[in-house]
Write a protein that binds this DNA or RNA. Structure first.
Lengths: 342, 342
DNA sequence: CTTGGTCGTGGTAGCGATAACACAGTTCCG
DNA sequence: CGGAACTGTGTTATCGCTACCACGACCAAG
């Protein structure tokens, strides 16, 4: 094995090219004028030594690192995966690196990773916060003067650039669909109202009921963590009610998956025994088996726009007001809702 | 708006606590002995000023950044998503940050991101390389003395720690299954043999045929990029053959999805008109609709073990031989292969 | 022939942290 | 009771790079 070589520094290049470190720096950065002949010599030395300038040192002196962070509650959720993809792409094209952090929807982990990102002196953060309780974490970012944008979720009391889907309208649309099909008892499986998407969808759910002149029945709200297991438990509880719902609105795709399992476990079927709709499509699953009637959000676009908003702040140092971008979701009619689907 | 505050440095803390920067450093790092009273004063100052030590400066002097990189060809592929999750988790628990890079299976992007990671002075890289052509990129890492491990894929001519699934045995198992069901003309949709997983599965495919005393027919190999669109095109070509296959082995899950679409587009169905098997399960899709007969690889485990191997190298500076970890895949019998499934 | 540009380049001083050593005061033990 | 060992803390010198200023060479203008 070759012994670990000492890292090549700008001085090594300078020595080899017979110039000062300053001149090498000028060549690397293409700044100011350098004699073409000198420039060539420096470039040759760089190539021969395989020199790569340290971003640490550069970041230290320039006070900017060229690094962003993306913080999401669950990378394995296909919705967030798409956000990651979109964000990563925009960042790379703009010449920034992107550090990905998965908080597992855990506030403590979120606090931890935000501290880490501060220590890393990232120039900006795109974050889908855990919940309204993320506010202190975000305040901390602000106190450090680190730019950030909210993606997918807002946070009560935090005025900041944000891009999210139209959750209220989307939920309203889904529930209206169920109402149109004649359902009168519509369950809603949702996490805590401390999450803005849950809150907004809850709002849409109620509005739709109200539009139809129906009274809101608290018994039909089943609270559960927004994961398959949560959906399973919640659906089971709903079905065990004395007067169970004939249709259910699941707050997101993973919850819907769990809900379906609960239905099947009771020997029932969707949509025959209970209709089901939810937010967020599941890309690959729908390709194989287009079953769930959903409001599909443009997840990848949330990622790209979020990152663009962020870069905008960073590079233009705009101090104008917080921008709010709301993207409409798309209604996809499929079998799970029990309509005569296309 | 609050004006961007100048970053608090160790000196600010030192001044406020009435000690030297060195003492603050000792408190931060818990190194050596510091008078409890002094320590308290320093900690108070840190809290009051909201001081967070710069990893840039620390990394520069210590020559270690506490940062790893994970490079994959496609974060949106559910298989790699799980690897990401596993890797990220192990890294965080071990006190490392993880930078995620998506190469989009593009060699040029791969080269670019590897240069970036060198510039970032990451301490190690876990990489699922694009193909055997990634070799120069990896050699470059080696010449920089940056530790790396291969995940999911090996690279011809690169001796390095690696963790991957047992592709040959898995492929053999899948094809044997089809043979057992009576199929004699079995198609194989696969990307270039420059990708080790493709190569190994190809190998397994041939071995299975050989075991059954069947002759290999090159016409049954359909080459295509390992994405749904590739699977679609390839399956169409196979079905248009004069003597089309009655069963097809798709090199991975996404290819299988495209293949199914091609079958349906011709008004045919899986498995009635053509049986289908593939590598890698699709977590959420299978939960909703367990249809594909697959060899399921322990993707998340690939991520965790890969990262553990990496940390091992970094922290123990082991110079022993390259370790090779091969994890078995699990055969999941479902409907797509046309057997009387459980 | 001085003055005042423009070039091309180098010197010096940090960025924010820590390694390595130094040093004063205390404790210990033969 | 004096030197060794230990405690707690400060000083200095970098880490690799770039901002900032300086400087010699050259040339045109006054």
């Amino acid at each position: 094995m070759v012994p670990t070589p000492a890292t090549v520094t700008i001085k090594d290049v300078a020595r080899r090219a017979g110039v000062s470190a300053m001149t090498v720096s000028r060549v690397i950065n293409g700044s100011a004028r350098v004699n073409p002949e000198t420039k060539r010599r420096v470039e040759d030395s760089i190539a021969e030594l395989g020199y790569v300038p340290s971003r640490l040192a550069r970041g230290l002196i320039r006070q900017k690192t060229g690094t962003l962070a993306l913080i999401v509650p669950d990378v394995a959720n296909p919705f967030f995966t798409l956000i990651v993809r979109g964000a990563e792409d925009v960042a790379r094209r703009a010449g920034y690196r992107m550090i990905l952090c998965d908080t597992r929807a855990d506030l403590a982990i979120e606090r931890e990773v935000i501290e880490e990102m501060i220590a890393h002196r990232v120039e900006g953060i795109a974050i889908a916060p855990v919940s309204d309780r993320s506010r202190p974490h975000l305040e901390r970012l602000r106190s450090f003067g680190i730019h950030f944008v909210l993606v997918d979720r807002t946070v009560e009391g935090v005025e900041q650039d944000v891009v999210h889907g139209d959750n209220t309208a989307g939920a309203r649309r889904l529930v209206r669909h169920l109402l149109d099909l004649g359902h009168r008892r519509i369950g809603f499986i949702v996490e805590s109202d401390e999450v803005s998407t849950a809150r907004d969808r809850h709002q849409g759910y109620r509005e739709a009921l109200q539009d139809a002149g129906l009274k809101f029945d608290p018994a039909l709200i089943a609270r559960a963590p927004a994961v398959p297991e949560g959906g399973l438990q919640a659906m089971r509880r709903l079905l065990e009610l004395d007067d169970p719902p004939t249709a259910v609105f699941a707050v997101n795709n993973l919850v819907a998956l769990g809900a379906i399992e609960a239905v099947r476990a009771l020997g029932l079927e969707v949509p025959d025994d209970v209709a089901l709709v939810c937010f967020d499509d599941i890309e690959h699953a729908s390709r194989l088996y287009p079953f769930l009637t959903v409001m599909a959000q443009p997840a990848e676009t949330l990622g790209t726009i979020g990152t663009q908003l962020l870069l905008d702040r960073i590079e233009r140092r705009a101090t104008d007001q917080a921008r709010v971008v709301v993207l409409p979701a798309q209604f996809l009619l499929r079998r799970s809702s029990g309509a005569a689907a296309a």
